[in-house]
Design a protein around this nucleic acid. Sequence first.
DNA 1: AGTTCAAGTGGACCACTGATCCGAATATAT
DNA 2: ATATATTCGGATCAGTGGTCCACTTGAACT
Lengths: 195, 195
Amino acid sequence: MRADAKKNRDHLLAVAGSAVAERGADVSLRDIARRAEVGLATLLRHFPTREALLDALLRTSFDELTARAGAFEESEPPADALVTWVRECVAWTTEYRGVTVLMAAAIEDPESALHASCVTLRAAGARLLTRAQDAGAARRDLDGDDLFALIAMLAWLGDQPALAPRAPRLFDVVAGALLTGAETAPAAVREGRRD
Amino acid sequence: MRADAKKNRDHLLAVAGSAVAERGADVSLRDIARRAEVGLATLLRHFPTREALLDALLRTSFDELTARAGAFEESEPPADALVTWVRECVAWTTEYRGVTVLMAAAIEDPESALHASCVTLRAAGARLLTRAQDAGAARRDLDGDDLFALIAMLAWLGDQPALAPRAPRLFDVVAGALLTGAETAPAAVREGRRD
DNA sequence: AGTTCAAGTGGACCACTGATCCGAATATAT
DNA sequence: ATATATTCGGATCAGTGGTCCACTTGAACT
C-alpha cells in the first residue's frame, strides 16, 4: 500500500471512530468523509461498505471480547464467567449505538464484512455456555445461537433511549433465567407454547 | 371531509396496509403513493409523517390488543392472562416488521403519532402485571415500563430474520423468569450488578 | 535527476429517500 | 351556472449510499 493511502486510511479510521461514537453506527458516510477532509469516493474505496468500515473499526474490540472470554474460562467459576462476559458484551455495544442490528444481520450473512467477527464472538460465547452447562450452572436447553440472540436482544434494549433505563433490571431477569436451570417452565408459559 | 378525499384516504390506508405487511414498516412512502396511483404530496397531507400513517393503520390492532387484555383479566388466571397477552403482543408485531423500533421511540416522545397507542398498551400490560403480582404469580420487582421493554425486546428479536428462529425459546426463558418470582438473582448475577 | 506508470484521489453524477410549494383541477354549496 | 374552498400532484429541495472517470501523485527504475 502506498504511503499516502495508508495515511488516509488511518486518518479515516480515526475520524470514523469518533463519528460513530458520537452519532451512532448510522452516521452519514459523507459526513465522515467531510470531517476527514476527503472525498466520499476515497472513503468508499478504502471501506467499500459501512460494514467494512465498522469491521475495521471494531475489530480490536471484538478481539478483546473473545480474549476476555478465554481468560474468564480459566480464571472464573463457570457461572460467573458466563454472566460477566455477557454483561461485558452488552455493555460494550452501548459505546457504539446501532451496531447491534448490524451484527444481528451479519451473523447469518456470509457476505457481510462483519460476519467473521460475529461468528467468532458467538463461538466464544458458546464455549462459556457449554462450560457452565457441564458444571450444572446453566440451563441445558440453550445453545450458542440462543446466547447470541439473547445478548443481541439485551444490547438492542440499551440502544433504545426510551428503554435503556430498564436494561439493567431486565439483564438481571434474563441472566437469572439463564442460570437457574429451570428448564421446566411454569405452567402458564408451557401452556401456550407453540413449538 | 370531502367525499373524494375520504375515498383517497381509505384507498391509501388499504394500499399502505399491504405494502407495510410485505415490505415492513420502513417502506418507501413514495412506493405506497405510487401503488395507490396518487401523488406523494397527497399521501403526506393525509398522513403527515410515517408515524401518523402507521398509527391510522395499526390503531384497530392496538385497540384489539388492549381489549384482549381486559378480557383476559376477567376470564383467565393471573399468570396465564399475563403470559398469553404478552405472547399475543409479540406475535402481533411479527405481522408488521419494523414497527417495534418505532414504538420503542414513540413511548417516550409525546410528539409521535404513535405515542398515545403505546401508552395505552403499556397501561393495559401494567394492569395485567400488577394483577399477577398481587396473586403472587409474578415477580414484584418489575413494573409496566419493564414489561413494555420486555415485550419490545422479544418483538425486536422476531423482527430480525437471523435471530427470529430463537425467539420462541427465548420467549419461554424470559416469560418463565417473569413468573417464577425469583426476585433473588443467583449469586453470579447479583455480583456484577451495577444499580 | 528525470521518466514512467500504476495507485490513489475527489468532483460530478445517479437513483433514491422524506418533505415542501404552489398552480391547476374539482367537488360542493349557492 | 357560478363561486369558492378543498384537494391534488408535478416540480423541486436537501439529504442518503454508490459509481465513474479525468486528473494528480508516489515511488520505482534507469
